[in-house]
Structures are given as structure tokens and as C-alpha cells.
Design a binder for these strands. Structure first.
Lengths: 252, 252
DNA sequence: CGACACTTTGAAGACGATCAACGCCGGTGG
DNA sequence: CCACCGGCGTTGATCGTCTTCAAAGTGTCG
């Protein structure tokens, strides 16, 4: 039964936080569970915007295709993430501009688009949705800035570091959520560039082999912690970032 | 009296749309009018987030400064725009990550940050705020994509075209809202790059001299209109865009 | 084993960044 | 009134990084 995913989804879901567990579960149960096989589309560029989804398990790639054939991934959504965040409230537009694609077998809860528009009558939910979109917008802003000021290797390091933090992964060894090609597209670079950057990362304490990432080199782990990200500051990821930047400054 | 700006601000303000004029004016009147001289800061990176602003006249530059001394402009807010959109609802963070700077003498309405958090109890306002943030997030996404797929000249053309559309300016001649250096930073490029791109733009029907922009070359203006942007498709801006792209495709 | 997708590597090219110099203009002060 | 200065914009030469095109390597699955 697909509903088995609900409790763990609720834990990771910021959208219903502050509502209490019973109310949160009740809202989750209003969603229609759907199962998508790997490589299936949830929706495609050009489809009318009909639904709102919460990912329960698996991973969904959101990407935008340009007329020129370029394809850039805007987000990789895992358990607890809602989508499509940026489209569901876009003013008069009623058509998807991004496509959503299951990177692995995926379970989602599906709500009618109108459901969310009603749900924000609850001020707590409205705040949560606003928070989610704001955080997302902020992330894109920062990444756009990084594209202007960091090398490919630095961007990858930064992204992996964040991945670790957000999903609570072990920096000493964790698996990438998707292929390197998708990751490259997520960071707005070509697969070749990504691949080449791996050498530089390896020299600086970040090993990536197959789908496994490991931040090496850990003199004083867990000693002092950077305010931003609750990862030891003088340890793996931060150290690697510092080594990667010529000037000792970097933005986290 | 600064309140003279209210009616024209309301017209351009999407935040209170759908409320009726009397209610909209009432909400505007709850804001405290403030006047900032050119080159003054509304707030700076690191300040606590205390207020929410609606721009009535003038222009406000929002920018982010990196530790490395890089400075990239995230937005240039004119009449009717609200700020800081992406920060005011950011989860537990209480400190500005961007600075706001008056590019010219500017009048704004100032609200306590808590005011907005209350205001979204009104579902109409909540929707409007969500719309505004969504649209903004979408814009950044598209621009990030452009940075990967377009040359400097194309990005500038695209930006100018949008400027025209959004603010209802005359493509045959309008003034830039700020200096070229700020514009360059807004597009994430160096002033030199911007300057060099002007030559290419001029060859393709976009003249920029001093602060004045003119889209030249207009065979069938006002004839057929592109769905996206209600500007004649085979006329100035679009034509220029097409000429600038090697492959005849471009994303608007 | 062979087909295929994914990844890596190499060599060439394009583009923007950087550093430096110059022109233009408005403002200040003698 | 003119000389000087500083901000801004332009132009040139060079450099570094990413992209592109091409080819070879690696892994998986039938």
C-alpha cells in the first residue's frame, strides 16, 4: 500500500509544519497516491497545470527545454519536496513551462491545483508555501551568483556540501541522487566539464567514484561549526571549498 | 505631500489587485511614506529584517555582495514593486542578505515585517504575494538558463525587450532605469563585456547611446503579435533577437 | 558476447574576464 | 574662465575557462 510512505514524508515536509501531526496526516490523506516508474513523466512542457505533487519516495527531475535543444535541470526533488513550486501560482499562465520526470521509481501524492489555492486560506500553510518558494528563489539567486564567481569545481563542491546538509547525509560517504549528466545539467554545465572538474575535486579532498561521494581529510571534525550549515567548519566540505578557492574567501 | 504617489502606485501594484480600489487604498495608507535620497541605503547586508517596502517612485537596486568583493545586482525595483520579496518569508533567517540602495531619489511605503505576515491572512493578498514571488523565481530561472545558452548581446537584447514589455515603454525610444554598470551587474556580466556587446546590438537594430535605447528597423510593426509578450513579433525587438541568434530559435 | 548508455579524455575553438589605457563629461576650485 | 579631478564608458591585448566535436573507455543488461 502506497500510504505506508505518509509518516516519513510528513517528517520531511515543511509544507505542513506547524499544524500538528493529526492535521498534517489528514491533509496528506487528501492527496491521491500515484506511482511513477523510472523514466516516466509526471507532466511535460506545454501540458496544462492541473496538479500539485508532494514527493514521498524516489526522485523527480524538473527541467526546462529550450527551443535550441538545450535542457537544463532546475531542480531534483526528493522525499518531502513539493512541485511545481514556481508554476502553481504563476499569474495567468496555465501551462507547464517545465517538465517533471521520474529519475527512479517514484511515489507522489497528487492534489488538484485548485486544492492548493484553497489550502492557503489556512495562514499557516500560506506561510509555509511562501517560505518554500522564498527559499527556492534565494537558492537560485545564490547559484546564479556562483556561476559568475566560481569555477566548475567550486560549484560542484558547493552543491555537494549543500546536498549533505539539506538531506542530512554523511559527508564521509553518500550516494548521488542521480547520474552525473543530470547533476551537470542541474548546475548548468556540460557533462564533459563536470567530468573534468572531478580531477580537481579529488586533489582537494572530494572523491567521486561512480555514484559515491566522499569528503576526505578530516583533522578536527565536529569541532567548530559554521553558523550557516551546522557542518564542522574546519572539516571536509569546508576545507575542500577553501582549498578550491584561490582567495581564501568563499560564500557558503 | 508624499501621499500624492498613492493612486499611481496602486495602479502598478499587483500585490493588492483583486481587492477593489477602496480597500487597496486603505492598505496603502497603512504604510509609512519614506523618502530616500539618491545613493542612500534602505537596508544593508547584515541588518535585521524589520520592514517591507513598496516602491512609489524612483528606483531601488537590490544587490548581493560576496566576500570576494563581487557585487551582483539581483533586482532593480521601480514603482509598484515590493521588496524584499525573497527575504521577508525566508524561514528562520532574520537578517538581510541583500542590500537595497536608492538609484535615484525614491519614495517608498514602509510596513513592519510583521504587517505582511498578518496581511496574508487575507487569501487574496496571500495569492498575490505568492504570485509575485513565483513570477520572480521563474524569471531568475529563465535568466540562469539564458546565461548558459546566450551570448552577452543576446542577454542584453532579451532584457531590454522585457523591460519594454513589463513597463509598457515605447520600443522606438526609451530611457534605461540606471547606469550601464548597474545594468551589467544586473545581468551578471562585467561593464567591459556589456560595452563590447553594444556594437553587436547596434548591428542588429538596437541602438544604445547614453541612457537611451531604440529598437530600429520596423517593417510590419503592430501586425502580428507574439503570444508571450504582446509586442509585434516581426518587429524591432524580436527581429533583433532573431538576428542575434545563429540558430533561428530563441527563447523569449 | 555485443549493444547501448554513460563517462572520460583529448584537441581546438569561442567567449567572457582581466588589466591597462584612453576619451568624455560634469563638477570643483583657483 | 580655465585647469584639474573623478566617475563613467569605451577600446585593446591577453589570458583562463568552458564548450564543442571527436574518440575511446567503462559498465550494465539482454
Amino acid at each position: 500500500m502506497l500510504r505506508q510512505f505518509l509518516p516519513q514524508t510528513l517528517k520531511k515536509l515543511s509544507l505542513f509544519s506547524g499544524l500538528g501531526e493529526t492535521e498534517g496526516m489528514a491533509l496528506l490523506r487528501q492527496g491521491e497516491p500515484r506511482w511513477y516508474a523510472r523514466e516516466q513523466y509526471l507532466f511535460r512542457h506545454g501540458d496544462p497545470i492541473l496538479h500539485f505533487y508532494i514527493v514521498c519516495s524516489g526522485a523527480v527531475q524538473l527541467f526546462r527545454e529550450t527551443p535550441g535543444g538545450n535542457e537544463i535541470t532546475t531542480d531534483i526533488a526528493g522525499c518531502g519536496q513539493a512541485l511545481p513550486l514556481t508554476e502553481i501560482f504563476k499569474a495567468p499562465v496555465t501551462v507547464h513551462e517545465v517538465s517533471a520526470f521520474a529519475l527512479s521509481d517514484t511515489v507522489v501524492l497528487e492534489y488538484p491545483a485548485s486544492w492548493l489555492r484553497e489550502a492557503i486560506r489556512n495562514p499557516v500553510i500560506a506561510r509555509n508555501v511562501l517560505s518554500a518558494i522564498s527559499n527556492y528563489a534565494h537558492m537560485i539567486e545564490v547559484e546564479a551568483e556562483h556561476k559568475n564567481s566560481m569555477t566548475a569545481a567550486q560549484q560542484i563542491a558547493c552543491f555537494l556540501q549543500r546536498l549533505c546538509i539539506i538531506h542530512g547525509l554523511d559527508p564521509r560517504g553518500f550516494d548521488l541522487p542521480c547520474s552525473k549528466a543530470v547533476l551537470a545539467s542541474r548546475l548548468g554545465m556540460k557533462p564533459e566539464t563536470f567530468s573534468r572538474a572531478l580531477a580537481s575535486l579529488r586533489e582537494n579532498g572530494i572523491d567521486i567514484t561512480h555514484n559515491r561521494v566522499a569528503f576526505r581529510n578530516l583533522p578536527g571534525m565536529d569541532e567548530y561549526v559554521c553558523g550557516h550549515c551546522s557542518i564542522a567548519d574546519d572539516c571536509h566540505p569546508h576545507q575542500a571549498m577553501k582549498r578550491l578557492s584561490k582567495n581564501p574567501e568563499y560564500s557558503c
